[in-house]
């Protein structure tokens, strides 16, 4: 923690910084989900009770509370459920705005995946709106160098 102090008109301001390191355990299911990314495979797990294919793959069903150990590969393609062009900045942002985010309903999955929508010009809002549309088809574009995390998928590209 670094501290300093500056004067303001009304009362003094103490400036500081809190920066903490973490080590987040993924568990075996998320570990396998991301290992499959290295081979460009997107896997979900199916609930035996409600038959939904959950994405990302997970250990138990959010509705039925049942363990979900049946792995199912879902498509690299799907429909864009919704999208937004982000045009504001914040600490820890993954890329420079403007950029496009979407919720993607991959074929064969019952849960939408949030990710970037890319492969389109992002400097004109009206141009983006022409290229990106709700219900439109999108396809995963993978990074050449994959290390097993959510950003191994570079973005989803509109394909129709």
């Amino acid at each position: 923690m670094i501290m300093g102090a500056v004067m303001s008109e009304e009362s003094r301001i103490l400036e500081g910084y809190v920066s903490l390191p973490y080590k987040w355990s993924m568990g075996a299911t998320t570990t396998r989900f991301f290992e499959e990314f290295k081979n460009k495979r997107i896997m979900g797990t199916k609930c035996k009770k409600c038959n939904r294919v959950l994405l990302p793959a997970r250990k138990f069903c959010s509705h039925c509370f049942e363990e979900t150990d049946q792995w199912v590969e879902v498509s690299q393609e799907g429909k864009l459920r919704t999208w937004v062009t982000v045009n504001f900045s914040y600490e820890g942002q993954p890329k420079e705005p403007p950029y496009v985010l979407g919720i993607i309903d991959l074929d064969g999955a019952d849960v939408g995946l949030p990710h970037f929508v890319g492969g389109i010009p992002t400097d004109d809002f009206d141009e983006i709106a022409k290229k990106v549309r709700i219900g439109g088809r999108v396809k995963a574009v993978w990074n050449e160098n994959r290390t097993g995390n959510i950003l191994d998928i570079d973005y989803f590209k509109p394909v129709d």
Binding site: Y22, W24, M26, T30, P56, V84, V86, F88, Y90, G92, Q93, P94, L101, L113, P114, H115, F116, N149, I150, L151
Partner: peptide
Amino acid sequence: EPFFQRPFLAGAPG
């Protein structure tokens, strides 16, 4: 959470 959603669902306006 840091694995799946954080890069995309940060920032309320988005």
